[in-house]
Design a protein around this nucleic acid. Sequence first.
DNA 1: CATGAATGAGGATTCATTCAT
DNA 2: CATGAATGAATCCTCATTCAT
Lengths: 209, 209, 209, 209
Amino acid sequence: MNNHSYFLIFLVVNIMNRDKPKYMQIIEAAVIAIAENGYHQTQISKIAKQAGVADGTIYLYFKNKEDILISLFKEKMRVFIENLEEIIQTGANASDKLSKMIDNHFSVLANNKHLATVTQLELRQSNKELRLKINAILKEYLNLLDNILVEGMMNGEFNPTMDVRVARQMVFGTIDETITSWVMNDFRYSLLDNAPKVKHLLLNGLKNN
Amino acid sequence: MNNHSYFLIFLVVNIMNRDKPKYMQIIEAAVIAIAENGYHQTQISKIAKQAGVADGTIYLYFKNKEDILISLFKEKMRVFIENLEEIIQTGANASDKLSKMIDNHFSVLANNKHLATVTQLELRQSNKELRLKINAILKEYLNLLDNILVEGMMNGEFNPTMDVRVARQMVFGTIDETITSWVMNDFRYSLLDNAPKVKHLLLNGLKNN
Amino acid sequence: MNNHSYFLIFLVVNIMNRDKPKYMQIIEAAVIAIAENGYHQTQISKIAKQAGVADGTIYLYFKNKEDILISLFKEKMRVFIENLEEIIQTGANASDKLSKMIDNHFSVLANNKHLATVTQLELRQSNKELRLKINAILKEYLNLLDNILVEGMMNGEFNPTMDVRVARQMVFGTIDETITSWVMNDFRYSLLDNAPKVKHLLLNGLKNN
Amino acid sequence: MNNHSYFLIFLVVNIMNRDKPKYMQIIEAAVIAIAENGYHQTQISKIAKQAGVADGTIYLYFKNKEDILISLFKEKMRVFIENLEEIIQTGANASDKLSKMIDNHFSVLANNKHLATVTQLELRQSNKELRLKINAILKEYLNLLDNILVEGMMNGEFNPTMDVRVARQMVFGTIDETITSWVMNDFRYSLLDNAPKVKHLLLNGLKNN
DNA sequence: CATGAATGAGGATTCATTCAT
DNA sequence: CATGAATGAATCCTCATTCAT
């Protein structure tokens, strides 16, 4: 009698681009090259050289130059969001979550000036179509922000009558402007020193009087 | 003998470009062409055609393509600031002045969607060098804002311990983000409806508790 | 009293490309460059250099590289047809007209080997879409040929029962193959020596027995 | 003592490519791919995919892309000639042989439109060097044609004073033009219907009056 | 033999800017 | 002042071919 058990296991593995080493290698190279030269001044050949691959190799992983920019942002945002979700969960309440969110946002970019340059300056040097794609990627982040705001409005921390969209635009606009100014000023001052001031002002604006 | 007196009078007249009709004509054409096509998709020839002049004529009034963008912003900003200064003077106190400033900012762009598109989207599609020039022009506006904030801090309306730069970044970042979202959403909702909400949130954030 | 007569004459002149000197200059340069290097080996810069103009100037007169080839053929064909129509009129009958047509075809290309190379070899190195455009231009020539054949069929010179299209294909195919062979053989023999032989064979094939 | 006899046998076996299954597999794939997409629009990867092999495998059987085209033509021509030689032998006389030759030529391509497209259109999209190689392969076919013509000239069927080369160019040129027109017209009419008309015209042209 | 990821040379085209008229 | 024909630099992308596995 046959007492063997045969298991035939089909592992349908979706090999994503980001599992291929060259994909991330090119993205990291693009961040550096674009931060240092600007998007329009960064030729594909510059990115390829920085990544240590041939020009043509770029096109095995990216549809075109614009796709590199989009993918770069998508990839960085994915990691950013993943971390952010964990961090937010540790927040005691909406204010605390918002505080942690801002701290995280500031600290990630403070620790990666190349990335900060790309997201705050170079990513915007694009036509409206590209901006819409970027906004779509940003959506998830803004949703997290909205959730926190709604939570705060419901539990009495934040003004329950405020317009969530406008509130979100204030929070995001303030963070964005603060960081962009820091980048435009060539990182000459500490971004992190501004975090408490920003948080204080924003929480004051949102709070339920 | 000569009893005549000769007077040689040098009238040093600074004929500014903006006094020449074609200068403004080209700037208005540029606003329209760039708003409709995007900065990089707007060739000099398109601006020239829109302005009803020859391509070469553009170069009699502007150093290069970038200079059109800069001049356009400078010109619009000049008028904007002039009006703003008058308006601010009518403000009873810092809060009132800030309120009027925001109202004015929103209403000017709500009434000129082409200009809104150019300032919020197209003007940013430029390298860092250009962004610095734009920031320099923006400086005067931010100074007005700073003055109001300081006035409010000194007379007890606003939190006297806040960092003026951060406060300014919150105010400007919020306004900027609000308007950019409106433009990105193809003006589908009323920008002016947001003004009270924005003002309420910001004043709440700034106020002295 | 006014005895002057004022005439105001509006001359609406359709300035065609071929009236502009650079247009023909570029076409002549293209014939030479393409004949000497082959169509795919002839870069735009080569044509420009041969024509003594800048690369960009080419694009003031032609839509793209393919358009140069099409325009070249159209232009040469136009002159060819104009001459041919005059020549045919001097023919006594269909056979004579056909004879003169063949003589003209052979002699034009015998006297312009660059053009022969381009029409017989390079013009064919193109995709089907381009070939269709070329055929459309060739149409007028084939119509002239058809007219002669029909005339001969009606007046008893040619076999009145033959299929005109097939007859035309024989005449054109024979001429074309004869000339192509001559080109492929590097013009090593006299093309004109073949004219009588070709005419004799073709007229024999067409004649009414 | 060594009573063994050692025989060292060199079997010089010329394994021709065409005996290897993948060789013909790739050629058939190339005919289809090139007919459907055009030579320049047919990337090696397209042929490989159509053949069900990897890109690199192509290069185990063919020197380069051009070699596929040449080999394809050589292979098809070989079969074509082999059949033709048998068919010709059944011809009663030169006229009959020529008739059978034309019938065969038309029927082979009428039955293989992909091949017709490749030989009449795509094969010509090549530089002069390639055209010479193609002509060399075509030589054998033209020799068969020459033999028939000479036979007819010697036995009084055809005009004994005609120039064989020109006569051959007429026959081949007519057949070629007839078929090319049919291909260019997307096979919209029956090619075979034209065979009797073509034969009648050509034999009339060749015959000894 | 077979694979397919990696290579890198090569060129048509655009468009800001100039300058002779 | 105004014109607009002419310039020519500058680059993304394709794809035939290679070669390590």
